[in-house]
């Protein structure tokens, strides 16, 4: 089978983007007002993630989205809020159907990563002895699952009205030979080393950097710079969406 050309000499990628262009982004917040306190849905290219946030609430054995089981009460932290993250990957999300077991180690690791990021981003000291359950549903994946999950969780937490220092925005960047490519899709991810970076808003504060493939150390810096600019761009888009939603909602209550 012939391999697709990842990056043409004219500087175009498989889906026709330039190196520094992100995939189309569609996001919405407050999509599930009946079942959760905060909810969001984000589409980045063909990757689609839904997020429901329940809380802050008293930690109970059957908290809302149901990430946590029986022993959460013992985790009730006296000083800050307890976050629990649960991700469900739909079996139909990939091209070939694949059923993951409930405790897939990669998914658990991703949940833990997201939990750590938001423990830093949420002003947890304002809600001691309470719990926030973040449930993520990955409905379609086409590369950048982690970044989409982080962005979705960020939006849903904002929708739930949970005080945060800033948006947490995540973006991937890869290195194809000597060219940096921003926001990879699945084909590109499989073909080149890439990193996922999350920043706290449009600052240079990095809250996550994950690189799981081998890459020359001289190539790391341009990748990081590209990913950071991607994060800043995403923050703009997410912020615009949140403001638009807020405006509509205010208009509805007649304020």
């Amino acid at each position: 089978m012939s391999r697709p050309e990842i990056y043409s000499p004219e500087g175009l990628r498989i889906d026709g983007r330039r190196w520094n262009e992100v995939r189309h982004i569609k996001c919405a917040i407050n999509t599930h007002p009946a079942s959760s306190d905060g909810s969001s849905i984000i589409e980045q290219g063909n990757t689609k993630v839904m997020c429901n946030v329940v809380g802050p609430a008293e930690p109970t054995s059957s908290s809302g989205g149901g990430g946590a089981k029986s022993n959460t009460n013992s985790f009730a932290n006296e000083n800050k809020v307890t976050l629990s993250v649960k991700a469900t990957v739909a079996p139909f999300s990939t091209i070939d159907r694949r059923k993951r077991s409930g405790n897939d180690s990669r998914i658990q690791e991703m949940c833990l990563t997201i939990q750590h990021i938001f423990e830093e981003a949420v002003m947890g000291h304002l809600q001691p002895r309470s719990q926030i359950v973040i449930s993520l549903y990955i409905l379609a994946q086409d590369g950048g699952m982690l970044q989409a999950c982080i962005n979705a969780a960020s939006l849903a937490l904002i929708d739930a009205g949970i005080p945060m220092y800033d948006y947490v925005c995540a973006c991937t960047a890869g290195m194809h030979d000597t060219e940096v490519l921003l926001d990879l899709n699945r084909l590109e991810e499989n073909d080149m080393p890439f990193l996922t970076m999350a920043t706290l808003g449009a600052t240079r504060k990095v809250s996550l950097m994950q690189l799981e493939t081998r890459v020359g150390v001289d190539k790391l810096e341009p990748m990081m710079a590209a990913a950071m600019s991607g994060c800043h761009y995403l923050r703009q888009i997410m912020d615009a969406q949140v403001r638009k939603h807020g405006k509509n909602r205010l208009a509805r209550v007649g304020a």
Binding site: H32, S35, S36, M50, N52, G65, T88, A90, P91, F92, R97, K99, S135, Y137
Partner: peptide
């Protein structure tokens, strides 16, 4: 046919 459902709530 693989029919997969997710009951979110």
């Amino acid at each position: 046919l693989y029919i997969d459902g997710i009951i979110l709530d």
